[in-house]
Amino acid sequence: MLIKGYDDGPLVAGESMLARPGFWSNHLMATCGTGTGTERPVPEWFGDDGADTDAVAEILFDPESWPVFRIPAAEGPGAVVVYRNLVGDYGIDYLLTHPGRTHAQQVAGWEGGFTGTGLTWHELVRMADSPDPAADGVEDSAARLLLALPLLDDLDVPETGPARVSAALIAAGAPQDTAPNTAKKLLTHLMGRPRHDRTWDSPLSGS
């Protein structure tokens, strides 16, 4: 696989992994925060178990094969999530794709913590709800939202935000009785991260 603007690693399409038990706990558990005691995030929050999570991790974090998850948008910028499996330098890179541009733009990364510039809630939802059926990648809006959720960098998430994330989690296989609490944990952690500089502009603004 080739992504113009991103020349590192043996990239492979990863979208088929989304339906595997264990994927979402791998992708989102760290976004819930570390927690303490009974509040420590566990795979069961996402409808997974430890064995499934470990099995998917062996594929997801394989240095010989870096999974790529594409979120193309019919209107406005889309995103690409790359599991950068360099030995000794593991991380997740977040790229944006822009209409009319041939190269992707890396805007953020995750290496034990989030760095870079993220998206507002409005931008995140717009991207999730604007699939491009003519392009290769993820079309399901719930999966698109959850894939890009770690990019959220917004203190002004609307009151409907937790319900939207909870519904996406349930659609992805999370238990209905615990999904609302998991959604709140995710958003609380994301909104509690160090904020960007006051002069920051969204990467979707063209800056």
Rank of each mutant, 00 (worst) to 15 (best):
R193D: 03
N26T: 00
K184L: 07
L86D: 12
K184R: 15
G22H: 01
F61E: 13
D140Y: 05
L186Q: 11
A183D: 07
S141R: 13
V165Q: 07
D93P: 10
L2K: 08
A13S: 14
A142C: 02
G116F: 00
E123P: 11
G5S: 11
P175V: 07
P162F: 02
E64L: 02
T53F: 11
T102W: 04
W24E: 03
L28A: 02
I3K: 09
Q105H: 14
A183H: 02
M1T: 12
P175K: 03
A51Q: 15
A55T: 15
G88L: 10
T102Q: 15
G113L: 06
S25H: 03
T188N: 13
Y6H: 14
D89V: 10
G88T: 07
D156E: 15
A167K: 13
M1H: 04
L145F: 00
G161E: 13
D93Y: 02
A174S: 15
A57E: 06
R195Y: 09
L86Q: 15
N26G: 03
P194Y: 07
P10F: 00
A183S: 13
A13N: 08
F114M: 05
W121F: 11
H103S: 15
G47C: 01
V12D: 05
P131T: 02
T178K: 11
P180Y: 05
R101S: 13
A163I: 07
N181D: 08
A172D: 11
R195G: 06
A142E: 01
Y90R: 15
A172C: 15
M1N: 02
A73S: 15
